[in-house]
Amino acid sequence: MNAGVRVQSDSFDMGAVLNAFAAAMSARNAGAVVSFSGLTRDIATGDLDAMEIEHYPGMTEKALAKIRDEAIERFNLSDAMILHRYGRMGPGEPIMMVATAARHRADAFQGAEFLMDYLKSRAPFWKKEITATGAVWVAARDEDEDALSRW
């Protein structure tokens, strides 16, 4: 298992994950660390009870490892990590997180954006919103697919 990729149902402490990632970076002479975290957001109607994320065990780890390797290579990153949850989670909980480290901030920022764009439409996760009135699969957005064309 690739140490830079974590797929788990448990919640996580964003600060602790970021600190652990950054702590290993000083030894690699990386002066820039960028992170992004996604939270379950309350939907338009404001009655989100829970978010359920399904994934494809096996392919998920494989796809994430590939995306991470590509980001490291393209942006000269000192390291990168991807953490993504699956299963049921409540509103306001962290769903996922990416972090990148590089010698310079532009690479770290770009690497993180690349990871997010690929994660959104190339990693096998599917979100379902559970409300008092029922459950709805979240539809993929054309903008997310279009975002890939810039890389």
Partner: peptide, 10 residues
């Protein structure tokens, strides 16, 4: 062989 809708991760 796996079939699924467009992915919605992140």
């Amino acid at each position: 062989v796996a079939f699924f809708p467009p992915m919605t991760g992140g």
